[in-house]
Design a protein around this nucleic acid. Structure first.
Lengths: 218, 218
DNA sequence: AATTAAATTTAGACAAAACTAAAAATAGGT
DNA sequence: ACCTATTTTTAGTTTTGTCTAAATTTAATT
């Protein structure tokens, strides 16, 4: 497996290509920041290796083998992110690009030992689930803060957008995973929210609320 | 800097190419497990970038910039080796190939944090010195066990051959860095040694003795 | 059903890093 | 100083992953 092949599989997985719904070459090209014609070439190669299903003009989806491989890369990526945050004091907005490199290190023992060192975490710093060695991962029933009803409470468990600017914004406003949030009021005009969190009240825009996941207190 | 360029610089450094003595393309090719013609191509490219001095048929040596770069890669390699042994319980015969991959990760913050986590080690698991950020490293005055006079004592501080088979042999015979060794007798016939170490006596071949470094107790 | 717009694939090319085979330069021995 | 053996370089290919431009297929609209 080359680095490039691994990146393709990862992106196809993220675009949902294991659910039998084929992904278009255009969509893949956009994510890979490359051209559709390059994607076609790679689709053929991956199909050759039995990692994707590919029919001309019909798009691409992962085979079982391809899904397994994609999950193992995602597992590595997310474990490295946890490592960087927990052991090396990286902030959650700095880990992605380093993890993009570390995820390609080839050593099963290495990643298993990292997993052990971290005491087998189930979620990465952005709240995304970490697949186990056999490709299983927790699906948490979470919802976007923007869809929580007025008066309801929830624990912040993840972010939808994990770009550095958004994460830095959250840091600046002391919004972090694990905090309990109650929706006090929704503004009809611009859908901004008035929320209570950790003993203080604040207003956040719809754009922020629609990129924060919360888990309702059952 | 591509991975390949980094590997060339590292190998040129190890062959002694910063001491103005140029290294032949043949020697580099052998270490790189490639052909001399490929080395010529790379020599041109590295010379172009100001990392090596290269004159046709005269061999290659590192410039100051090239030496600096080589040292930073060696620093990363050795720090990762320490990390693997100290934090993830790898044995010293398993670390090399994983460190070969990890040394190419590009993040200054990452390696500085690893250095800090390890409390700024000065030597790697094989006793080789770890260059500091500014490229300085300790030169320990050590000598091969095979050259120690009869009756003299020394502390085992490093290995010359750090291949897995040799390291495994040392483990099996409970020979480890930090142990004090006294040479009791040298066999004229085959230059094998009779040594005392950690309260026991054993015989080792010349080949073993000439791959173990000791530091004489001053 | 025909036409057009959009998406996708093909064909041909390129850059990096390697190779092989052949040519050129150097070094050693006489 | 010459010849030969060795080392090193050149020239031309290969592979991987990409690109552009052109051709083809699918989808959408009338």
């Amino acid at each position: 497996m080359t680095r490039s092949e691994e990146n393709y599989l990862k992106i196809i997985f993220h675009l949902g290509g294991s659910n039998s719904t084929p992904i278009t070459t255009n969509a893949i090209a956009e994510q890979m920041e490359t051209k559709p014609s390059s994607v076609t070439d790679m689709a053929k190669k991956l199909a050759e290796k039995g990692l994707v299903n590919y029919k001309k003009y019909q798009g691409v989806s992962l085979t079982d083998q391809g899904t397994k491989t994609a999950l193992s890369i995602i597992r590595k990526h997310r474990l490295w992110e946890v490592f960087l945050v927990k052991k090396l004091d990286f902030s959650w907005d700095e880990v992605h690009e380093v993890a993009e490199q570390l995820e390609h290190i080839k050593s099963e023992k290495l990643i298993d030992k990292i997993d052990e060192l971290l005491e087998f975490p189930k979620f990465d710093p952005h709240g995304d689930p970490i697949p186990s060695k056999d490709g299983k991962f927790m699906v948490r029933d979470k919802q976007l803060l923007s869809e929580v009803a007025i008066g309801d409470k929830g624990v912040c468990v993840g972010v939808k957008d994990s770009s550095a600017p958004f994460l830095k914004f959250l840091d600046k406003n002391k919004i972090a995973l694990g905090h309990t949030i109650q929706v006090l009021e929704k503004e009809d005009f611009d859908q901004s929210l008035h929320i209570a969190m950790e003993g203080r009240e604040l207003r956040i825009s719809h754009q922020i609320a629609s990129n924060l996941y919360v888990k309702k207190n059952e």
